[in-house]
Structure formats: structure tokens, C-alpha cells
């Protein structure tokens, strides 16, 4: 399996080229719609949620784990925020007090994510449950708590001022995209420039050697699941602001999609390898495919089909390319 991810950089370039080809084909097929400012804008509202969730899953995959609970975290955070916005804020609040309430809500949402991630981290690093099982359990638990709180109903009707986050633009950039850019830039720096980031890659490469090298494994793992949880919380903010409602089981298909995006972006599910930029390109590729096919009047289900096909196509392409690369070396040797 490790072989799969060796030629990561050339695979990344190939993904980039394919993404551009997808873009060009879509632009050529439906130029009147695809290349419009409106489409670009609407895409920029759509993909940040999936993008952030994919980055969250990527972080945990780098350590050799996975976070299946991240969508559950996003929904739970969304519901806590929704409770504040609908139950706590007194009628008729506006201006600066309103702003404070909003900030409070967002802080509650994001810290819910952090706390949930901390719980995942504890279960994995301290109790020793395999990540896939621990987060399978907490996925049920977090969603379960959300269902218990809402009794299965959606909470809606948030303050106008809050909805700005999901629906407005700063200059030409949609607010969600703005958050996405800031967050991914931050995560990218964190992964490549800080000792936490490097430790995370090293744990994913060889957990035992990491311990023997003096890396505080438990601490790093807990931090990475917290990070994933925080990203889940941020996604929760965008989700409820965009749809003006919070629901316990919103976007449950996001989990598998986010795994798909990470893997497509070159993240090794066994740990140790993967770059933020790869995941960003992958999520863009899927967004182009998805918007383009919408314009071609393909249903959502056709998109599901194409996404799956696209994932397998890229993986097979990587497989053939990597094998060819190995064969070429042989040929060169023979010529000598």
C-alpha cells in the first residue's frame, strides 16, 4: 500500500492537470453558464464546507488515523450555536450586544468542536481504541446527542447578522471561501513549519520510532484530533449560516465524500504523507465536475457516479504511472 503514495509529487501534478482539463472541458461545453461570474461565485459558496471537512480528515489521516466523526462534530457544534441564537439572545437585540452574542455563539460552536476532538484524542491516544472504531463510536455518540437535544427536528431562524457568514461576499470572495482560504493557509503553515506538524507526519510514518525519538505521541495525537474537531466546528458555523437551519443528521454523506477528497488529493490513508494543496486541488476538481454536470442537467446521482469513477480513475492512473516509472528504470539500466 505504501507504494501507492511514493510518487506523491508527480501524482499531485497529474491531479492538477486533470483538474484544469476538467475545468476547460466544462467551460467549453457550457461556456455561457460555466464561465460566468455567477457560477464561480456560486461554486465558491458550495465547496468550502466539504473542503474544510476533507482537511480535517486529512490531518487525522496523516497520523495514520481517521476521523469519521467530523460531520457529527460539525452538526453538534451547529446545534449548540443554534440553541444560543434561538434561545439565549433576547428578542430585539441589535448592534454591539448582538455582535457579542454572535461571537459568543461562534466561540461555543468552535469550542464544542475542540472538545469533541479532545474526546476522540483521549479515546485513541490514552484508551488505545483504533481510530476508525473510536470515531465510529463518537460519530454515533455526537450525532446521538444532537438528536437527543433536537428530538430529531431542525432548529432554524437565526439572526440576520449571523447569516452574513454563509451568504455574503467580502469584495469578490464569498465569506465561506474567505474562511476556507484563511483556515487552509493556517493549517498548511502549521503542518509544514511547526514542530506539531512535523511530529504528526512522523507519527504517521512510524509510530514506534516516533516514541523512541522522544515525540510525545499522546499529546500530538490529541492535538491533531482537536484540530480536526475545530475544523468540524468551523464547518458547523458555515453550514448553519448558509442554510439558516441546524439539523442533527445534516450532510451525513459528507463523511465518505471527505475521505474521497483526501485520498484523491494524495493523502496516504496509512499515514505520513499528504499535502494541504493536494486536498484543495481535489476538492476544486470535484466542484468543477459537480457544477459542470449540474449545468449539463445531470442529476445529483449522476454526480455520485462520476465522483466514484473519478476516484478510481485517478487511482488507476497513479498505479499505471508508478509502475511505468519503475519499469523505465530497468530499461535504462539495460542500455548501460
Amino acid at each position: 500500500m505504501k507504494n501507492w503514495f511514493k510518487n506523491i509529487d508527480s501524482n499531485l501534478i497529474r491531479l492538477l492537470i486533470i483538474t484544469m482539463i476538467v475545468f476547460i472541458i466544462m467551460a467549453a461545453l457550457v461556456p455561457s453558464k460555466f464561465l460566468t461570474l455567477r457560477n464561480i461565485e456560486s461554486m465558491s459558496f458550495q465547496f468550502p464546507e466539504l473542503g474544510l471537512l476533507s482537511i480535517a480528515i486529512m490531518i487525522t489521516m496523516l497520523t495514520g488515523g481517521i476521523d469519521l466523526s467530523v460531520v457529527g462534530i460539525a452538526n453538534l457544534s451547529g446545534i449548540f450555536m443554534a440553541l444560543i441564537f434561538t434561545k439565549v439572545i433576547p428578542e430585539g437585540t441589535s448592534g454591539f450586544p448582538m455582535f457579542l452574542y454572535l461571537i459568543m455563539g461562534i466561540i461555543v460552536g468552535v469550542s464544542t468542536g475542540a472538545f469533541a476532538g479532545y474526546l476522540n484524542g483521549l479515546l485513541i491516544a490514552k484508551v488505545g481504541i483504533t481510530p476508525i472504531l473510536a470515531t465510529l463510536g463518537t460519530m454515533q455518540l455526537f450525532t446521538g446527542i444532537a438528536v437527543v437535544i433536537t428530538k430529531g427536528f431542525a432548529i432554524s431562524g437565526f439572526p440576520e447578522a449571523f447569516l452574513i457568514i454563509g451568504n455574503s461576499k467580502i469584495l469578490f470572495v464569498s465569506f465561506p471561501l474567505f474562511i476556507f482560504i484563511l483556515t487552509t493557509a493556517g493549517i498548511s503553515v502549521l503542518l509544514s513549519k511547526t514542530s506539531l506538524g512535523i511530529n504528526l507526519y512522523l507519527i504517521g510514518t512510524n509510530e514506534k520510532a516516533a516514541v523512541f525519538s522522544g515525540i510525545r505521541k499522546a499529546r500530538v495525537l490529541i492535538k491533531s484530533y482537536m484540530l480536526s474537531g475545530i475544523l468540524g466546528g468551523i464547518t458547523g458555523v458555515i453550514m448553519i449560516a448558509r442554510t439558516n437551519s441546524a439539523k442533527a443528521d445534516y450532510g451525513s454523506s459528507y463523511v465518505l465524500q471527505a475521505i474521497l477528497v483526501s485520498v484523491l488529493g494524495g493523502v496516504n490513508p496509512a499515514g505520513g504523507f499528504g499535502k494541504v494543496i493536494g486536498v484543495v486541488i481535489a476538492v476544486l476538481a470535484l466542484q468543477f465536475l459537480s457544477s459542470g454536470f449540474s449545468m449539463l442537467r445531470f442529476s445529483n446521482f449522476a454526480k455520485e457516479f462520476i465522483w466514484g469513477a473519478f476516484l478510481l480513475f485517478i487511482m488507476v492512473l497513479n498505479f499505471i504511472q508508478n509502475r511505468k516509472a519503475a519499469k523505465n528504470i530497468v530499461k535504462k539500466e539495460d542500455l548501460k
Binding site: W4, I259, L260, F301, E304, I306, G308, L311, L312
Partner: peptide, 18 residues
């Protein structure tokens, strides 16, 4: 092709349903 099952079935699963 010696691909990991999780990735393969993620792909085939969404293809089949799609």
C-alpha cells in the same frame, strides 16, 4: 491492482448507487 479496500469500495459504492 492491489488498492486498499476502503478506497476501492468508496469509489465503487458511489458508482454503483449513482
Amino acid at each position: 491492482l492491489k488498492m486498499p479496500g476502503l478506497i476501492v469500495t468508496l469509489g465503487t459504492g458511489s458508482m454503483i448507487r449513482g
